[in-house]
Design a protein around this nucleic acid. Structure first.
Lengths: 200, 200
DNA sequence: CGCTCTGTCTACCATTTGGTAGAGCGTGGG
DNA sequence: CCCACGCTCTACCAAATGGTAGACAGAGCG
């Protein structure tokens, strides 16, 4: 295990895996393909990570950390009520623009089911709890319409992840997955959420 | 090609493929596994469908037909404005209860990307157009808040499909995928949509 | 009876995949 | 100088996968 601060192969493998699995899918991308893209051999990957599944685990760990970081800072940021919801949604769309593979990976892992999905769930649990508590407080204060906070979160999650990762469905609905379109989608989602949630 | 009305192997293969691919995924289920589940051999499958991809195509064709049928009748049914939206959403949740693999397949195919996703899109296009036109008319009449109809549809699609197929995310949000829970999710989605869409 | 046609199976096959074993190679420390 | 260690590669391998070729069984029919 290298103690230096530099970041070589080990990280590059994670990057490649994120990019490939987050877009083409886990089963659809072999270790050989991954290695070829990096200009190394599969055995080098297996030196750093003992198996494909272990690599996925490591990738999930790193990605959830990054994800949670981004959303934590959005949650920590100033503002309350709607401003906070908007900040979080905006941060997700920012991620969609800058690191689409990251959200693609979330979608992919949730599809893979246990044990990968379970792991990811667990690691994102604190975030979910925090968001859920926030929503509940807002409802209690009468700022938002009453809903089951968990179901509400699930709905928001589905909507946003869908809006951001469902490229082909997007096309089916006559929307090209460009940056401009992403902004429009963001605006639309925010409008929708606002009317759905806020009482005033 | 059998001319009788009976339904043997050919249909059974489609059924098995729907069940397996709609839940475990396309790449994750081999032809051998499919055949074993049916008590036949892979070669029998390849006799009826020349390749795995051809089987997927046929499955998409049959499934979109069934799907479109269910939603058409919901759209055709009595009612206007909110009643119609509610009818459609209810029909999707009914499908989720009775034929979960069908919605699972939609999710799976949209993930697989072209050419499968493109095909499915094309076959569902008329339905999308009709729904989009309906929404637009309702907005024009002032019954619904103004949105881009296509984006609105995408949002509704994402929310409902997510609420219905994202089993592991569901668990992460502390919701067990039972029948009771499905009813709660339906109620919640309807409430959300109603506040989001309707002006009155 | 025998012929043909339909549907299923047995026997293979090439390729790909995740994974193992171990050689080689460069660098830093004694 | 050389040894040890960290890292990558070459050489394999067994299993699984999608697919091909062709045998075989039974039903319908002349």
């Amino acid at each position: 295990m290298p103690t230096e601060a530099a970041t070589p192969t080990r990280e590059r493998i994670l990057d490649a895996a994120l990019s490939a699995w987050g877009t083409r899918g886990y089963e659809a991308t072999s270790l050989d393909a991954l290695a070829a893209g990096l200009g190394i051999t599969k055995q080098t990957i297996l030196y750093w990570y003992p198996s494909k599944e272990a690599l996925l685990e490591a990738l999930i760990a790193r990605s959830t950390e990054e994800l949670a970081g981004a959303m934590q800072s959005a949650l920590d940021g100033a503002g309350d009520g709607w401003a906070k919801v908007e900040a979080v949604v905006r941060s997700v769309f920012r991620l969609a623009a800058r690191r689409p593979e990251l959200l693609g990976l979330v979608r992919e892992v949730s599809r893979l089911g246990p044990p990968a999905a379970t792991r990811m769930s667990l690691e994102l649990q604190p975030l979910v709890r925090r968001a859920s508590d926030f929503l509940e407080a807002e409802m209690a204060a009468g700022h938002m319409r009453r809903h089951d906070p968990n179901l509400l979160l699930l709905a928001i999650y589905s909507t946003v992840i869908g809006m951001v990762t469902e490229v082909d469905v997007l096309r089916a609905f006559g929307e090209e997955p460009t940056a401009r379109s992403l902004v429009r989608r963001r605006t639309d989602v925010l409008q929708l959420l606002r009317s759905a949630l806020m009482t005033t």
